[in-house]
């Protein structure tokens, strides 16, 4: 599989990364290099193999732990908003979204 420039642009759009025209060809070459190298996985026989979804080895957690239904956090608005690049009153602010 080889990425064309349209795919590079589509992927960048999905990932919300603005690409300058000059970057497209370079990225296309790099990504194709990486994907070409990854292609070798196709030759592995994985018939009937259960995919490994998490990182836990044997002996690690096999089921998610559950928390009790207790309110333990909140009322930290100033801390939540402290790093905001744009804050309006008690809200985060972003460029207006037209629905």
């Amino acid at each position: 599989m080889s990425l064309d420039t349209a795919t590079v642009r589509r992927v960048a759009a999905l990932a919300r990364i603005r690409l300058e025209e000059a970057e497209v060809a370079r990225l296309q070459a790099e990504l194709n290099g990486i994907l070409g190298w990854i292609e070798q996985l196709r030759s592995v026989d994985t018939e009937g193999v259960e995919p490994m979804a998490g990182g836990a080895p044997r002996g690690g957690p096999t089921r998610m732990p559950m928390r009790e239904d207790v309110v333990t956090e909140g009322n930290i608005r100033e801390l939540i908003l402290a790093n905001a690049p744009d804050r309006e009153g008690d809200f985060f602010a972003v460029p207006k979204v037209v629905e």
Partner: peptide
């Protein structure tokens, strides 16, 4: 499936 799921299966084989 071709990439991610395949990789998870190979990961299982490595483990």
């Amino acid at each position: 499936e071709a990439y991610y799921l395949k990789a998870q299966k190979v990961r299982a084989l490595i483990a």
